[in-house]
Each structure stands twice: as C-alpha cells, then as structure tokens.
Deep mutational scan, measured.
Amino acid sequence: MEVRTIKVFTTVDNINLHTQVVDMSMTYGQQFGPTYLDGADVTKIKPHNSHEGKTFYVLPNDDTLRVEAFEYYHTTDPSFLGRYMSALNHTKKWKYPQVNGLTSIKWADNNCYLATALLTLQQIELKFNPPALQDAYYRARAGEAANFCALILAYCNKTVGELGDVRETMSYLFQHANLDSCKRVLNVVCKTCGQQQTTLKGVEAVMYMGTLSYEQFKKGVQIPCTCGKQATKYLVQQESPFVMMSAPPAQYELKHGTFTCASEYTGNYQCGHYKHITSKETLYCIDGALLTKSSEYKGPITDVFYKENSYTTTIK
C-alpha cells in the first residue's frame, strides 16, 4: 500500500517557510505537534488534498525554529505562539472599519479597549522592536488589523473576551517599542525636605499616572512627601515624541487643539466601556464603527496623549 502524501510549508514567522512532505494517514499533531492554519487549530486533523502548498504555523520545537521565533517575536515564552494563534482565530472574524481616516474595530468580545489602543497607536510616533509587531502594525494602518490585535493580546497575556485596560495595554506595548531616546527629568520640591531631581528613561519617561493635564504637570502637581507634608512635583525636561497622561476616570474637559487623542471610560472596574476622542479640525468621538463630532467635550476621561518633541522648564 502506497503512502499518500502532500507537500506543505511549516513556519513560526510566515517569513521562513520549511518544506514538509506530510503523510495523509496521520494527523498534523502526530507529525508536527500543535499546528495552526489561519489561526485555526488543526492539530487533530489529517492532511487533505486542499492543504497542498498551504502554510501551517507550528510551535518552535527545534533550534532553527526557536531562533526564527525569537528573532521575529522577541520572546522565548513557549506558550506565546499558541496564544497568538488562538487569538487570531477570533480577531480574523472582527470587522476593521476605516473611521475618520483611522483603522478602528467594530465592537465584539469586549474589544473596546483594543480599538482605543489601536486608534491611539496610529496617532503617536512609535516604532516597535519585534519585527512581528512592526509588520502587523503597518498592515493594521492599511486596514488589516487582525494579526496586530492578536499579537497585542498575546504580548499582554490576554484572551479574547476578557476586559482590558488601555493604560495597561499601552504599557505592555511600550515595553516592546523603541523608547531608548526618551528621557524625563522631574523635580520634587518640599518646604521641609528641599528639592530632589529624578531622571527617568524609556517607558517611565512617557507615562504618568495622577493627572490628565500635561500643562498642569509642567506647572506642578501636589504629591505627598515622605515627611508627610505636601510637596510639588513638576516637569523639568521632556525628550520624547509623545507623552501619555493618565488618571482614574473623572469628568474632564478636553479643549480642541490642546491634545492629540484621549480615552474615555464609562462604567466601573468590573464592567465598563471605552471610547476614543481625537482632536482634528474639530473633536471626534470614535466608538467602534461609530463616529460623532463636537466642538467641545466633557466626560469621564482616563488617558490623554500629547505630541511632544523637546521641553525644558522655565521655572527657576
């Protein structure tokens, strides 16, 4: 009895394709271990004539594949690729409408935090270190965002349907971005203890939790000093293409032309909904596939993004 075979390709990165001759009487799992086709788990399936010449994702289970996976995804987590594939199996079914010149995501599976993050990423200057993220990001900007969303979920250790947080998501993504040249110098002034300067680099240099107003941050924000008295913390120097200011959701007025974009969060910790506000020729609110415009805006804002380049204080 002759062994019926077909020729397929296996890959971990969709760049390096490895030619395989597979036995049609055995499952993919018996031949390769966990195997995925377009995100779908085909591990328990036997090869079919229609699979001839198709590319299958496999887990990096030998040295060659491990090197290829690390170079593309910059992670050695053995569960990463499987999590990416199972997320992709959902995100490829989502709709990605162009809204006001940006790629958004039609609401499904509690994905409003991903839509808000995706919209924000198209408006701030950011370059990702893992080629996987950078490639998928370019495709997302062009309207094909399924891979990018699935990668975000995998890097953030999230599953489809789980509630997510924009600030946490951005923080994970910033860790995989090139923020080497970003720098922030802060000064804390206390009447009792004097003053202390701190220099922050990388992710810490672009994120701040405690106030939404970048102007206020430049002037000074009140913080408790270690001595128990009130101290003032203010920005001395900022070198970065953008800054992200966050605070627990509270009524906040966004003035046209003073910011790049913002995240609105309605609801409580267990259950809520994100919308995205962007400042173009007027203010726009993007909620999944829905767009509304207004000249002014007041609502429960939790993150505001500002364009920056270089700032030095005039406070002496």
Score class of each variant (00 low, 15 high):
R167F: 14
I277P: 05
P248W: 07
S263P: 04
T314W: 09
S310I: 13
N14D: 11
T302L: 03
F56S: 00
L290R: 10
K191Q: 14
E253K: 07
P78T: 10
E144M: 05
Q196E: 09
L200G: 05
Y172V: 05
Q134Y: 04
L283G: 05
H48K: 15
Q123L: 03
D77F: 01
G220H: 04
Y208K: 02
K44F: 14
F305I: 11
G194L: 10
N61K: 11
C112G: 14
D38Q: 11
K7V: 09
R141L: 12
K218L: 07
P224A: 13
L37D: 11
G272W: 08
T278E: 06
T258F: 08
N309M: 11
L212I: 04
L200R: 08
K183P: 06
V221R: 07
K280G: 10
A117F: 09
E162G: 01
I277C: 05
L17G: 04
A262N: 06
Q195D: 13
F128M: 03
A117V: 14
L186A: 15
G267M: 09
Q30K: 15
G267V: 15
E215N: 13
T314L: 12
V188A: 04
G210Y: 02
Y265R: 12
A231G: 05
L200I: 15
C285F: 07
L151N: 00
H48M: 09
V185N: 05
T75C: 08
I6S: 04
V221G: 04
I105G: 04
S246A: 04
S279T: 07
I315K: 08
S79M: 12
S263F: 04
Y252G: 00
S79G: 14
F259S: 10
E264Q: 09
K191M: 13
D77M: 02
P47N: 06
K229A: 14
A154T: 10
C225K: 04
A136D: 00
Q123P: 00
L65P: 07
F259E: 06
V99H: 08
T199R: 13
L126E: 11
L65D: 08
D23S: 13
H256I: 15
P241W: 01
T43G: 09
D63E: 11
C271I: 10
E162A: 12
F242N: 06
Y72L: 12
Y172I: 15
A150L: 00
Q237E: 12
R139I: 02
A250L: 14
S181V: 08
P34T: 05
P60T: 10
A136Y: 03
G29C: 10
E52F: 11
V8M: 09
C182N: 00
L235K: 03
C261L: 06
K316V: 13
G202L: 04
K233N: 13
T43R: 00
Y234C: 12
M85V: 06
A136S: 08
N61E: 15
Q20K: 11
V221E: 07
Y84F: 08
T120M: 08
Y274I: 09
N309Y: 12
T91R: 02
Q195A: 15
D13M: 05
Q123K: 01
T43Q: 15
T314A: 14
Q222N: 12
S171P: 03
V185C: 05
H74N: 05
L212N: 01
H176P: 01
V22E: 01
A145N: 01
L102S: 05
V12P: 06
Q98S: 13
T192M: 11
W107Y: 15
Q134I: 08
A142M: 06
F242G: 00
R167M: 05
C190A: 01
H276P: 07
I124P: 02
A132S: 06
E168M: 04
T211G: 07
Y265S: 06
L133P: 00
M26I: 07
P34S: 03
N268W: 05
A69N: 05
T35Q: 06
G257R: 08
V189N: 13
Q230N: 06
Q20G: 06
C225M: 02
T226D: 15
K158C: 04
S86V: 08
L126D: 04
Q20L: 03
T169V: 14
T169M: 14
H176V: 03
D77W: 00
D135L: 08
W107M: 11
S171C: 14
N49T: 15
C261N: 03
T232L: 12
K44S: 10
Y214Q: 08
T226S: 11
D180G: 15
E125V: 06
K92H: 05
G82P: 12
K275R: 15
V166T: 05
L173V: 13
S294L: 12
T27R: 10
Q195I: 11
T192K: 13
E68M: 11
A136R: 03
C225I: 02
V21Y: 15
L163F: 15
Q222T: 14
G53T: 07
V67Q: 11
Y234P: 08
H176Y: 08
L254K: 08
I286P: 05
N129T: 04
K293A: 12
V221P: 03
G194D: 02
L151S: 01
F80S: 01
S50G: 11
M245D: 06
G101T: 03
L283F: 13
L88A: 00
T312H: 14
K316C: 11
V206Q: 05
V203R: 13
Y138T: 13
E71I: 13
V8C: 12
V22R: 01
Q195L: 12
F305G: 04
Q251H: 10
P249K: 04
D165E: 15
N61H: 07
N14L: 03
R83M: 03
S279G: 02
C261I: 04
K201R: 11
A177S: 08
A132G: 14
F148A: 00
Y284N: 13
T313E: 10
H90C: 10
E52H: 10
R167W: 15
D13F: 00
F305P: 08
K233E: 07
Q238N: 03
Q30M: 06
H74A: 05
N111P: 00
E162T: 15
T19S: 15
G257I: 02
P248Y: 00
V189R: 09
V189T: 09
Q175L: 02
L118N: 04
K298H: 14
G202H: 04
V243L: 07
K191L: 10
E308P: 10
T258A: 15
D23E: 10
Q238Y: 02
H273T: 06
K307R: 13
L291V: 14
L59Q: 12
Q197L: 11
C227K: 08
E162L: 04
W94Q: 00
L81E: 01
E264D: 07
C190K: 05
P47C: 02
T226E: 13
S181I: 09
Y297S: 04
G202N: 04
V188F: 09
V22S: 06
A108T: 11
Q270D: 05
F80I: 03
V3Y: 11
L88C: 10
H90Q: 14
F70Q: 09
Y138F: 12
I15G: 04
F305Q: 07
E215C: 03
L200W: 02
C227P: 04
K191E: 08
E264A: 14
N16A: 07
K316Q: 14
S263Y: 08
E296R: 13
F80L: 01
H18M: 10
A108H: 06
G101R: 01
Y57E: 01
F148H: 00
A145M: 02
Y297G: 05
D63N: 15
E264S: 14
Q195G: 10
L151G: 00
E264M: 05
L119Q: 03
E125P: 07
K316N: 15
P60A: 10
V99I: 11
N309H: 13
Q30W: 07
L283N: 10
T232W: 13
Y137K: 00
L163G: 14
K183M: 06
K44P: 11
G257H: 00
A40D: 14
G202R: 06
E52R: 12
I286V: 06
I124M: 06
E253M: 12
P47D: 01
R139S: 09
P249Y: 02
L88Q: 00
